[in-house]
């Protein structure tokens, strides 16, 4: 099994840095960007197997990024991150083609399970 490439898009670098390291420890290849624009170019330049996208970001919003990714790569799975309890945002994202959504703070094991599930599709 080849290493899975994950693209992490989240403005909170402290969060993405630590999460990236943890995923790398679990044999994932992780690329992190801290805004929507960079995320979109990363998808084009270095296509990942899966995108983990925070919905709440300054600048280009998570939903907007999701829509653009999906318009060009309808088959690329996107896993959304939302604040705790923001179920509506997650559901709205799923209506726009997201694979699933998870609430922050994350449980690493649940995240791994979701990534595996997405990869298995």
């Amino acid at each position: 099994m080849t290493t899975m490439k994950v693209l992490l898009i989240d403005d909170e670098q402290e969060f993405t840095g630590a999460l990236a390291e943890r995923l790398e420890l679990r044999d994932y290849t992780v690329q992190t960007v801290d805004n929507g624009e960079d995320g979109l170019s990363a998808v084009e330049n270095n296509p990942p197997h899966i995108v983990v996208l925070d919905l709440k970001m300054p600048g280009l919003s998570g939903i907007e990024v999701l829509k653009r990714i999906k318009s060009r790569h309808p088959d690329l799975p996107v896993l959304l991150l939302t604040g705790y309890g923001s179920t509506e945002d997650g559901i709205k994202g799923m209506q726009h083609g997201a694979f699933d959504y998870m609430m922050k703070p994350l449980n690493i094991d649940e995240l791994i399970a979701k990534l595996q599930e997405a990869a298995g599709k």
Partner: peptide, 10 residues
Amino acid sequence: NNPLAIINEK
């Protein structure tokens, strides 16, 4: 939530 997520990941 955000600081919690950071603490969690760290």
